[in-house]
Write a protein that binds this DNA or RNA. Structure first.
Length: 185
DNA sequence: CGTACGATAGTCT
DNA sequence: GACTATCGTACGG
């Protein structure tokens, strides 16, 4: 079984969708071939109330995409040199997204959103593209189930400014079977 | 091992 | 002009 995740899949509650993304596949297709990786770590950013969510600062040119339909890519540049890949979730006018933090490609752990984007050749030219079309970049269910037990929950990273919102356990990480990626940072 | 810090540019005030 | 959902290197123990 190999199924491209649909728009309705991403329309659900962000935290639940985030948890369910662990064990799914991220697939990148450029002119020269295809790279697929199993998703190992994600973070949920939920609504304008969530101080850690970029959209909490309002609807700007940059955050506008999060207010749109689910299943769309939100890619931004951070610290002037790295890109971060997110999928927009929930309905229109409810700004939320899931940050993809780590994947496993052929047994090799790609740990960190910046490294992941570098590895897969993801940059801002992919911002706002539709991720439900199986074109350039998309998510796949390959029928591998992950038990809830195998998924750890942690606070999100790099958002100490977010007050109480920094304590939410909205980061999900698969305990690796290979032993790779034990580190939690 | 651990912690500290600089690089670098887009975004918002 | 300040800040940033990061990463790699440098250095101390």
């Amino acid at each position: 079984m190999r199924e491209v995740l649909s728009r309705s899949y991403f329309a659900g509650p962000t935290v639940e969708v985030a948890r369910s993304l662990i064990g799914k596949y991220l697939v990148r297709e450029n002119g020269h071939g295809q790279i697929a990786g199993k998703i190992v770590e994600v973070e949920a950013y939920v609504g304008s109330e969530d101080k850690a969510c970029h959209a909490s600062k309002g609807r700007t040119q940059r955050t506008d995409v999060m207010f749109g339909p689910p299943g769309v890519a939100y890619v931004y540049l951070i610290y002037g040199m790295y890109h971060c890949l997110n999928v927009v979730t929930e309905g229109e006018d409810f700004p939320a997204a899931i940050l993809i933090r780590a994947i496993e490609i052929e047994g090799r752990l790609i740990d960190g959103p910046g490294r992941l984007c570098r590895e897969m050749g993801i940059d801002r030219t992919l911002n706002r593209i539709d991720l439900t079309q199986g074109d350039a970049l998309w998510f796949e269910d390959r029928g591998q189930s992950v038990s809830k037990k195998a998924i750890g929950t942690f606070p999100r990273i790099g958002i100490d400014y977010a007050g109480e919102w920094a304590n939410k356990l909205w980061r999900f990480r698969m305990q690796s079977e290979t032993g790779a990626g034990r580190k939690t940072r």
